[in-house]
Every structure is written in structure tokens, then in C-alpha cells.
Amino acid sequence: MHRLRNYILCVLLTIFLFFTAIAVQGAVFAKYSVLDTKTYTDVIEKENISDKVYNTIYDHYETEYNATGVPIETYTSVIDADTTKEMVIGCITDAFSFIKGDSNKLDYKICKEKLVPLKESIDKFFEDYADSINYEKDDAFYKKTASVYEASEEFIMDASDVYKFLTIDSAGYLKYAQKVYSYIDTAVMGSVIATAVLIIILIIANIRKIVGALYWISISAGSSSLLIMGVCIYLKATDYFDRFAIKAPPVFAAMTGLFNKLTDQLIMVNAIIIAVSLVFMIIYIFTGKDKTLKASQAA
């Protein structure tokens, strides 16, 4: 009867441990991966996103030349591949300093600073053009130069914001991310403490044969990891992220690159947890066997 009661208690504790294990993984993953700037900048490097953004900007102004008559050199003389990279990374840095509460507004300060030479370049082009045709610089002239710069700033910043933080912010979700970030340490701490408490109770419940706790821990850790890994493998095997319909190539590469990276990280972590769980199970099986042999020899 005592054994059955103990067994049921261990099963219940293991089920709770399953969920706290998922909570720990979720909280730690969110803190050290999803809400870490490095995760995003690594994808930029790996997928060569800044080059794709530069090509988008270049193609846009090459096409726009027919419409505006503003030659592409006006833009490319001040915005090169390196500047584009700095702007793309600047967008991420700005977005995360907003999420982390370091700034009150998502205003892409770094990006705007990089675009100051562009304003000078556009102004210079229009000044020279107006002089070449003896155009009187009236209000319409200054309005035109200002509108060309504003449109350029908007387009280049939109192209550089490959993770679309501005769109997410306008939908109100960055504020939600801010909230999540402010509670993330509490979540990590809480889930780790809950897991530790459950493990201690499991050890106490198996005090007569402590190695039995390894059996239950391996079941909960292994099961939760198996479930997470199963979902991740499904996402990878079906090319789920590649099916996202994102028309802009840099945004597509950034988004799918990010999701694939996060999935790969989850697969790796959970594979390690499953391996550790198997080791725990093997220890339990062999330690238990040895004990049985010794006990029967003693008898």
C-alpha cells in the first residue's frame, strides 16, 4: 500500500516536473536567446542580410531614377554596404534598447544619424540641378528636396528594419515584449525554484532508495524534451518557415533565418537533455541491479 501511494505521488510529481521543466526551458530560452540582441545580429551575419538590404536599396533607386530623375550616385555615394550593415544592426540595437527600457521611444536614432550625409547629398544634387537650369529656388524647390529626403529616409529605414520592429511596435506588441522582459528574471527564478523544490520532494519520496529519484527526473526531463524536440523536428522537416510568404528577400531571409536558428538551438538543447535523461535512466537501472544482486548475495 505504501509502495503504491509512493508510486502515485512520484507520478504526480513527475507530471508537475514535466511542466516546470518546460517553463524553465521557456524562460531561459526567452532570456538568453529570444530577447538577446546577439541572436538577431548573428542571423544578419550568417544570412548576409545587410548585402541583401543594400541590393534592395540599390535596385529601388535605380528604378526610381526613371521617376525622380535623381541619379543613383546621390544615394550610393553616401550609403554603401558597410553603412547598410551598421543601419541594420542599429535598428536591432535601438529596438532592444527600447524593449529593455533603456529608451522611451523606438525612434531608430542610430539609423537616422547614419542618414545625415544622405540629406546633404540630396540637397547638393538639387542645388546643382537647379543652378544648371537656372531654376529659381522657391518654396516648391525646398519642399521638393525635403520630400525627397523624407521619402528616402522612410524607405531606407524600412528596408534596414528587417525584423520589422517598427511595424510590431505600431501594433503594440513591443510594449508587450517590454513587459515580458521586465518579468523574465522573475520567471527564470520562479521556474528554477519550482523545479528544484519538486526534485527535492522527489528525492525525499525516494529517500529509501535515492537513485529512484533519477528514474523519475529522467522521465519528466526526457518527456518534456522529447515533446519540444518533436515539434521542432516537425517544423524543420516540413520546411515550415520557408513557407512564409514574405515578399522582401532581406525580410524573408532574416525572419526564416531567425526562426530556424531558434529551432536549431532548441533541438540542440533538448537533444542534450534527452541524452542526460538516458544516462540517469541507465544509472538507475544498473545501480538498482547491483543493489539487488548484493542484497540477494547477502541473503
Partner: peptide, 20 residues
């Protein structure tokens, strides 16, 4: 040292996994 039957040891993880 009376050990839990092997069937229980094998079925328990499977059942817990399914329940969870």
C-alpha cells in the same frame, strides 16, 4: 530491495509522456 516489475518501469514513462 524488492524491485518494481519491469513492465511498470517501462510503461510508466510511456504513460507519463502520453498524459503530459
Amino acid at each position: 530491495v524488492k524491485r518494481t516489475p519491469a513492465v511498470v518501469l517501462v510503461l510508466t514513462p510511456v504513460l507519463i509522456f502520453l498524459i503530459c
